[in-house]
Design a protein around this nucleic acid. Structure first.
Lengths: 351, 351
DNA sequence: CTGAAAGCGCTAACAG
DNA sequence: CTGTTAGCGCTTTCAG
């Protein structure tokens, strides 16, 4: 007889034997207790407790063909922005039968293509992606995937479902806030050049277009973002464009860097220089002066994205497949109403 | 005939049929190509490509009894400290057959107990935990687990393997650096009160003990850390202990908050107040003045921790099971050699 | 509501 | 080096 190395832990058959029922009844008692009479159910639960039985997930999946994996592909695991999203994702998934499988695309389209294909072959129950800018290959590949897909961060045409906001609108609102404060020579600082960053740049351009005579002053680097990068970029900008009176930063890291550079150069914020960031990282509120920024509820976005997937997996009717989660411009001291000098500039330039 | 809903995708039997070999040969060709003759191997590879065959992981695991899951339990997914560790973990695991299953213990021992039990039942291939302070229940439960376990962050007696450094020694070195710079009335700021934080506090005490006549001035809150928290705590401290000339912060968030509070109050750093943090977050170097801190290579720690697990899983001999990854005190402008006023204080107080 | 049989897709064991 | 057979632990199908 070919005896096989059993795992040693109790199986459903052990429970069935102890409870004096068939294995399938135990299986039913576990998955849908209502299908089993109360008496048997009690006997089974007793046996489960006694044996310390825990179902073998692999066997469940193999037999049922139902995966319990939700694939999550994000461009960064370090960036606080995604850390908040991840927290929301995990919190929402924790009480369910599903597990998260995270992949790091490193802001690379090729890597995203590779991971989407890799994960898709594992037949996940669902998939979560960041952004709307997947490659054509990946979009068409996923378009006829049989699992639900949600794209987060941005608001727009999604493959299946989506939740996020318009980064262009958000940046436009931020820059408009600078204009409302009286700033007139407004620059834009960007890094990494990922799709969201470029859309914020576009929003900056749109806002400036509404300001007669204003010309875009932009400095973007493909290099990763960071406080040090923000400081260096802003320093470079100040050396070139000497007459700027405000800077819209593509994120709060850059904004904090810009603030530090102002401190280092003795430039008064907000009097001589207005600064606004993006993302509302925790540090922004504590800075001196506190940095104005744009807030998106990333934790909630992560939660709701998973919620949409779960609804679909449970066959529930999902409401809107494309959700705009919105944003808030957070006004703080770094963009206070300007002093007379700049007010003068307003009347001079803005008319 | 009871026909069953097949998943639709090609199975190993399909490949075997197309290649004209037995299923097991395909299985071998995939797992250990050397066991199969070159001719068959080529035919099999050809068939795999043609059918676009991808092995069913669940079936592999079920049949072999070999899990491919490495459970990772961390106290936070948001904290940059763990984000770096996570990046190291994922980078090291990516090219292997293993997957990471992350759990968030939220700095709670109860939650850690719960998740360890939950994950352990799934029979992971290995487990990674943060810190050495698991509950007695969990420690003894894991002590006779059959999978390898690595504990990261701290250096000390581990359940199985460990990699990290002594946070007490690191903090002692940081405070000693303050003393070497001439600071004499040194306070300690802490938050969250997790085990590492308390060990840093102990290191602070040890360093002060070496300073004749110095008394600890400590302010710790059980609340989560953050820049705003650091600012508030330091403000509270300044209102009470008016004569402190330096502050050792349990992490860089708090240190940046302390720096901001100094800026808000017009306290000159480093002349009137020395500040040192912990962790060397990216922002610390870019602050004005740049903040001194303690660096631990968290990315490398994550990588090596997984490396230790992989070595064990592959039956390789692991070198030292308990690794001290060390730390570096990073000296920056926030703790520059002090001016005459403080030098005077030194001779007056330090003797 | 309950059960026996069949089989998910793969691999360990044994034999050649 | 290759194949046959049995079976991992569970759930679906079909029959009561």
């Amino acid at each position: 007889m070919k005896t096989r190395r059993a795992s040693g832990r109790p199986t459903i058959a052990d429970v069935a034997r102890l409870a004096g029922v068939g294995a399938i009844t135990v299986s039913r008692a576990i998955r849908d207790p209502n299908q089993v009479s109360e008496e048997l159910r009690n006997r089974i639960e007793e046996a489960i407790r006694e044996l310390n039985y825990v179902p073998n997930v692999q066997a469940q999946i193999l037999a049922s063909g139902q995966s319990n994996v939700i694939a999550v592909l994000l461009p960064s695991l370090t960036n606080s922005v995604y850390a908040d999203v991840i927290r929301g994702i995990y919190d929402k998934v924790a009480p369910t039968r599903f597990h998260i499988q995270i992949g790091n695309t490193r802001y690379s389209e090729q890597e995203e293509d590779r991971l989407v294909a890799l994960f898709a072959w594992q037949r996940p129950a669902a998939m979560l992606l960041a952004g709307l800018d997947q490659s054509e290959t990946t979009r068409s590949f996923l378009a006829d995937a049989e699992f639900p897909i949600v794209q987060i961060m941005e608001h727009g045409p999604a493959i299946d479902m989506g939740i996020g906001c318009s980064h262009k609108d958000a940046a436009r609102a931020a820059v408009t806030h600078l204009i409302d404060c009286g700033y007139r020579r407004i620059a834009f600082l960007g890094a990494r050049k990922d799709p969201r960053m470029m859309r914020r740049r576009d929003g900056y351009r749109e806002a400036l277009a509404a300001l007669p005579g204003a010309k875009p002053i932009e400095l973007l680097t493909p290099e990763p973002s960071g406080v040090a990068r923000g400081r260096a970029l802003f320093s470079q900008l100040l050396d070139t464009a000497t007459d700027i009176d405000a800077v819209a930063c593509g994120n709060d890291d850059l904004a904090l860097g810009a603030l530090f550079e102002c401190q280092a150069r003795g430039i008064a914020v907000p009097e001589q220089m207005g600064i606004i960031g993006f993302n509302d990282l925790e540090m922004a509120a504590a800075a001196v002066p506190a940095i104005s920024t744009v807030r998106i509820d990333r934790y909630e976005m992560g939660r709701r994205a998973i919620g949409m997937l779960l609804d679909r997996l449970e066959g529930k009717k999902v409401g809107e497949p494309i959700v705009d989660i919105g944003f808030d411009v957070i006004r703080r001291a770094s963009t206070s109403a300007v002093d007379q000098g700049v007010s003068a500039a307003r009347s001079a330039k803005g008319g």
